[in-house]
């Protein structure tokens, strides 16, 4: 069991920025990011025992993170008297130049619907149409069509 935990920890560490990015793009505030982040890690741990390596770890992680975020309960959950520790960063409150750029990205992406958000995020991470299609559950051709429509939507946004 210890080796399984070490392996899980290694995979999560390598992909932590991906997981947090997805959670950030599906959230409205820092509390929501933290909730989604924790839920995603728990779901990854639960699914890790059944992960057979048939897809790349990053693909599997993206799939779980997206499913968690898309199906998340939007009500703010009240947690018990624990101290949830998460990534020590507040992308909503930081005002340095980099954070402002990130916030611009967040504003653009959060105006899209959930599926479009997922597709554009994966495309921005240089995933292939095939990979995106396998995660979202559509055809690669459909991915191309959706990306074209997303471009049009983003062009029209101020």
């Amino acid at each position: 069991m210890k080796s399984q935990e070490k392996e899980f920890e290694r995979i999560v560490m390598e992909n932590k920025s991906t997981i947090y990015t997805v959670c950030y793009m599906f959230s409205k505030d820092q509390d929501e990011v933290n909730d989604l982040f924790q839920d995603t890690l728990v779901n990854l741990w639960k699914g890790f025992k059944n992960f057979r390596g048939e897809s790349k770890p990053s693909t599997w992680i993206y799939r779980v993170a997206l499913n968690t975020c898309i199906t998340a309960d939007n009500k703010k959950k009240r947690r018990g008297p624990t101290i949830p520790l998460t990534m020590d960063v507040d992308l909503y409150q930081d005002h340095d130049a980099e954070s402002l750029q990130v916030q611009i990205l967040h504003k653009r992406i959060s105006r899209l619907d959930v599926v479009d958000r997922a597709i554009v995020l994966m495309w921005l991470e240089n995933m292939s149409y095939d990979e995106i299609a396998s995660i979202v559950g559509i055809t690669p051709q459909n991915v191309g069509v959706k990306l074209f429509r997303i471009r049009e939507k983003l062009k029209q946004m101020k």
């Binding site: 924790q38 101290i83 980099e98």
Partner: peptide, 27 residues
Amino acid sequence: EMRSQLGLLQTKLQKESIVNDRLLREV
């Protein structure tokens, strides 16, 4: 521009460490 903004985000996140209370408790 969006790609470069995403790159900034990921660089920022790479520097952070994770400690997840709920995950620890599940284990």
